[in-house]
């Protein structure tokens, strides 16, 4: 099973949920930190580094002696990473999405692809957890290729928990696509509700079963609960606003290590996920 932990709003507790679920499970589990702009799952684990690998994306290189300035590459590129305003193409590698189209359409064969580094993947282990973490280089704005590289490490038959980036744009879609279930973590505040709506729209669009975790459920108001009820969205578990959780977090200690009384919360969360998945499976079969 591949379980993604996502949220619209940042700072709702995705990493806390992802890490503690991984720790709660006893069989081997792959924890994928797809929040590649700021991976932080490793802070809560005692990891032993296994290996790391550079990730690159293809970018075009122009041989000006072969280029006749026809501009077909620029007409093709919808990201304006290669423009031909005046006789010779000008390249903007940071805008390139690496599709290779410019090289394909070039009639004189003047364009070839070279590799541009965007970040690293680090694989490490802590007991039964294998952590696969993507880390985007500073100044690089293109997360999806690195997230895909993290997900390329998926292993058949191994439970996988995927910590998604916040938001609802390309990086998140790249992270949750292909997952079996999405846990949306939110908080009962107007911001939490606003971004939860966006996240619900996104996950519904990709048609992945999902449920909601309400973190710090005893702050704010009850509009998130009302929203979930009126849209028949399962609330998987609610976690209280407990100062001790924040203190453990600030020291890099997982909740279930610092406060074993929260172990049943993660047990319930896992059971709820399985329940919802079974239910969705049945309703699919009925259609």
């Amino acid at each position: 099973m591949i379980l993604a932990v996502a949220s619209g709003k940042g700072g709702t507790g995705k990493t806390t949920i992802a890490v503690n679920l991984a720790k709660y499970l006893t069989d081997p589990v792959d924890l994928m930190d797809c929040d590649v702009e700021e991976p932080n799952a490793h802070l809560f684990l005692k990891v032993v580094r296994q290996h790391s690998r550079e990730i690159t994306v293809p970018v075009p290189e122009v041989d000006e002696s072969l280029c006749d300035g026809c501009g077909q590459c620029s007409q093709f590129c919808q990201y304006h990473a290669i423009i031909t305003p005046n006789a010779k193409p000008v390249l903007f590698p940071e805008l390139c999405h690496g599709c290779g189209g410019c090289a394909l359409v070039c009639p004189t064969g003047a364009i070839r692809e070279t590799q541009r580094r965007i970040g690293v993947i680090e694989i490490s282990t802590d007991d039964h957890i294998r952590l696969i973490e993507g880390r985007l280089d500073i100044g690089i704005a293109m997360a999806p290729p690195l997230i895909r590289a993290v997900k390329a490490n998926l292993r058949e038959g191994i439970t996988t928990i995927l910590d998604a980036p916040p938001g609802t744009s390309c990086p998140v879609v790249t992270a949750v696509r292909g997952c079996d279930f999405v846990v949306l973590v939110t908080e009962p505040t107007p911001f939490g509700l606003h971004d939860l709506r966006l996240a619900v729209d996104m996950v519904s669009e990709i048609r992945i079963p999902f449920g909601v975790v309400i973190n710090r459920y005893d702050i704010g108001d009850d509009r998130v609960q009302q929203f979930c009820r009126s849209h028949r969205i399962p609330i998987l578990v609610e976690i209280p606003d407990d100062r001790r959780i924040a203190e453990a977090y600030s020291e890099g200690i997982a909740v279930i290590d610092a406060l074993p009384e929260y172990r049943p919360t993660f047990e319930r969360l896992m059971a709820s996920v399985v329940d919802v998945m079974n239910h969705e499976g049945k309703s699919d079969a009925n259609v």
Binding site: H80, I83, L95
Partner: peptide, 10 residues
């Protein structure tokens, strides 16, 4: 989101 300046120049 990105490349507005390049597009505007074109």
């Amino acid at each position: 989101p990105q490349g507005a300046g390049v597009q505007a120049a074109e």
